[in-house]
Amino acid sequence: MQAFRYRQPKSVDAALENSGRFLAGGTTLIDLMKLNVETPQQIVDINLLPLDRIEATADGSLKVGALVRNSDLANHSEIKAQYAVLSLALLSGASPQLRNMATTAGNLLQRTRCYYFRDTNYPCNKRQPGTGCAAIDGLNRIHAILGTSDQCVATHPSDMAVAMMALEAVVHTRGAKGERTIALEDFYLVPGQTPHRENVLEPGELITHVTLPKLAEGTKSYYLKLRDRAQYEFALSSAAIVVEAKGGHIKRVRVALGGVGTKPWRSHEAERVLTGKDATPENFHAAAEAALQGAKPLRDNAFKVELAKRALVRAMTVATQAA
């Protein structure tokens, strides 16, 4: 880790005046600094900013501060009652110790666990544009099958963001150009030819909070995460479902997949298959097929195509049983 300057502003305005990397829980940033993958000159510790509250808003949506810890969010009564998918996703992630540190904004912005991104001895287009991708011909069991390019095949590893995708969350920011509101769906970028650009944030732009839109009465949700061991492992495949169903009939549904995409993967294809249909195994399977239509497996991760389908089918089954 190289030496850096450290600032700890007390207000959002002061934070925006300092250029440097924002430090929230530090579970991604410090980790990568120790590996010399991140080498910021200046750290702007934002932990004193008043961004740690969960509040209801006038329009019925829920406002989640950027600094709300993952464990607090997961265990918040309103989240558990109304946004079960989010609570489940958060609790399936990392470990209790990490969740106690990790924040909402930090979680959205966590970096990939691609082995080669984390080791400066390897070529990696995401870390160092133009050097190549060590994963495409390397060991790539944990890599993505959706949204990949010939430049990068890394997954976005967040569970929380997958649930938020299905909840159609909205990201609120402040930066040099003032405030912005960005639908989470438009927030992430697929790698294309610029894998080092993972989202639409401008340098120095601060996430202040995320809003979760109010869900229609009777909406049910569920998050299912599949992996080798039962806890403390990133998803090999996961599915987030938010569904409005009545008498076995699906009125509206939102589907997102984790562990398989270069970004938290919203599947409009699956949603189209399911909307207006009955909640039957056949329809779930058809939706799973549609969701994975464009999958491009690599040498070691072909099983993820099937695994993602199974996650989707099971999550739909559970979510609609609950409905």
Partner: peptide, 25 residues
């Protein structure tokens, strides 16, 4: 422990990627 055939590095050389049993298992 998985070695990268290109340079012999154990690529899962940390406790997030080298999977051992957790309590939940």
């Amino acid at each position: 422990t998985i070695y990268d055939p290109r340079n012999g590095k154990p690529i899962n050389n940390n406790f997030a990627d080298y999977i051992v049993s957790t309590n939940a298992d």
